[in-house]
Amino acid sequence: MKDYKYCQSCGMPMSNDPQKGGTEKNRSKSKKYCSYCYQNGEFTSPEIDTPQKMQSFCIEKMKEQGMPKIIAWIFTRSIPKLERWKK
């Protein structure tokens, strides 16, 4: 399986993930999704079911950490192009 530099759900750099990836059902590391988005082979927030909802969620989290909204938007604008959201 391909190694991804960014979570294919939220776009966070995988190097910033404290667990270095989520987990699959068999407890192996996910190389595609971060630990914030994916645990035990399932997405952690099933209510976030569109790229727009994920982008809004991520912008709010970044603003809580002190990032200006415009910068957060710039960091999240590629979310719709990530593999989880491709049709």
Rank of each mutant, 00 (worst) to 15 (best):
57 F>N: 03
61 K>E: 08
52 Q>H: 03
25 K>T: 06
80 P>W: 05
43 F>Q: 01
38 Y>S: 06
8 Q>M: 15
43 F>C: 03
13 P>Q: 07
48 I>R: 04
7 C>W: 06
10 C>W: 08
75 F>L: 07
65 Q>D: 11
36 Y>A: 11
71 I>G: 01
83 E>I: 06
71 I>H: 00
67 M>P: 02
59 I>M: 01
35 S>H: 01
52 Q>Y: 02
76 T>I: 07
6 Y>K: 14
60 E>Q: 14
70 I>M: 08
52 Q>F: 00
2 K>P: 15
1 M>N: 10
18 P>R: 02
80 P>F: 01
4 Y>R: 10
72 A>N: 11
74 I>P: 08
45 S>V: 09
56 S>I: 13
79 I>R: 00
14 M>Q: 12
69 K>Y: 00
54 M>D: 11
85 W>R: 00
58 C>F: 01
52 Q>D: 11
50 T>I: 14
35 S>G: 07
35 S>P: 01
17 D>Y: 00
84 R>K: 04
82 L>M: 06
38 Y>I: 02
20 K>L: 15
45 S>E: 06
63 K>Q: 10
46 P>D: 10
67 M>S: 15
57 F>I: 02
29 K>A: 09
18 P>D: 07
36 Y>Q: 04
60 E>W: 10
20 K>T: 02
22 G>K: 06
43 F>Y: 15
14 M>E: 13
5 K>S: 03
63 K>C: 15
74 I>F: 07
49 D>A: 05
7 C>E: 02
81 K>G: 00
